[in-house]
Design a protein around this nucleic acid. Structure first.
Lengths: 221, 221
DNA sequence: CATGGGTATTTGTGATCACAAATGAAGCGA
DNA sequence: TCGCTTCATTTGTGATCACAAATACCCATG
């Protein structure tokens, strides 16, 4: 299918990972960064054509994303990005608050100066994305800000769960920030950096909770 | 492979779900209930033989379980139940505490008498499992106790994450309770029921946190 | 112009196959 | 006896195919 070589089991040169993993990562970042709108349908053959693989790896990648809640599968097997109900959005926001407050709290004692400066650099990039009205770049750099901080918590399982929540919210965040068109850079990110610099744990917890909850509150349609 | 019918795409009679889902659910409950020890290896052909399907659905089920952390995949693609490090166990215990305290707190205002009685009945079943020294039955009914309570929280995404954590801890819990051989029924379950009955939210949160943390603390090998 | 039925196409599912890499065992030599 | 090499077997990977069901399309009829 991919070109004209009917050879099964492509030799997989040196360190390149498996085909289904390539497809999985590609789709995952696209969904998490909000490059796909809610209720966007996908087909296995279409995915295979795009990533130049057959249906088998495409199916595995899709299956995995469905298991993580990044895609929704209808009873007939068709897959699409989810359209979240309001209750679901509120629940996921509560999960973000729960997990990210804990992660930031664990990262606080390990946060040294280099990290804080990196966070401020990312904040600058976020401001650029806002200026260019680039929703995808905004979402991507915003998540990068949070992930950079949480990586210091040294809690991989907790961070993985957090990213799963981000993944589920990806298309919804696109819809949100696409219609929001904000012009100022996020105020709570400044508060997070300030609390980190001051070693103020209650302030950090409050700032993170506010930042996470603020955006999603605007979805009470 | 399954018998002698070479027909592809088995017609899938009425309401029976797909083959890969049957395999997934079968393996998932086995892992979550602690029927498999840590580092237990599995092969795709073996799974297919056991569930009477071909390798394709077996691969999808395994892929999904790997994504959820229920199985570990080596660089060569071999899969086995995970052997968790102490840090990982502590982190998962912290996650359980975080999520389950929140879930119980949300379930509290909706907990009426019938629920409390059901929880007490389950506690009786747990006592039986302990008396029979049946580790698998103990784990299964213990999880049933928690799930019955958390279902009242009306928070499906949170409960799903919680079950994912249980899944990752499945083989480890088997190893724990297999060597523990406890004789008394869990004291904290009584405290949970009492706090529910009294409508005591701080007490409930403390009891749940203690119950979740107590068992896993014994793994500081 | 709307609507219904019937056909054609698309799409997911699962079995099978060929291949490569990894694993395990046997054999040989020091 | 131990270590290394070599070969056979096991195992995962991905492509392809046949089939069924769902969807889309089209034309005829009111």
């Amino acid at each position: 299918m991919q070109s004209q070589t009917p050879s099964p089991a492509t030799p997989r040169s040196e360190n390149t990972s498996s085909a289904h993993d390539k497809v999985y990562r590609g789709l995952r970042t696209r969904i998490m960064h909000g490059e796909l709108p809610p209720a966007h349908a996908l087909t296995l053959r279409g995915i295979g054509r795009e990533f130049e693989v057959s249906m088998t790896p495409a199916r595995e990648a899709v299956q995995r994303l469905v298991a993580e809640g990044a895609l929704f599968m209808s009873s007939s097997g068709r897959v699409a990005t989810p359209e979240l109900s309001n209750e679901r959005i509120e629940e996921l926001a509560a999960l973000r608050a729960l997990l990210e407050v804990e992660l930031s709290s664990r990262a606080l004692p390990r946060a040294h100066m280099a990290l804080i400066e990196r966070l401020q650099t990312i904040n600058g990039t976020i401001a650029e994305a806002i200026a260019h009205k680039d929703a995808v770049a905004y979402i991507r750099t915003n998540l990068e800000f949070h992930r950079t901080l949480y990586l210091r918590a040294q809690a991989p399982a907790m961070l993985a769960m957090c990213e799963t929540v981000w993944l589920q919210l990806g298309p919804t965040m696109r819809a949100l920030y696409g219609r929001l068109q904000r012009t100022e850079l996020p105020q709570f990110h400044r508060a997070i950096v300030a609390a980190l610099r001051a070693g103020d744990e209650p302030g950090l917890r409050l700032a993170v909770r506010s930042d996470v909850t603020a955006g999603l509150k605007l979805l009470a349609s």
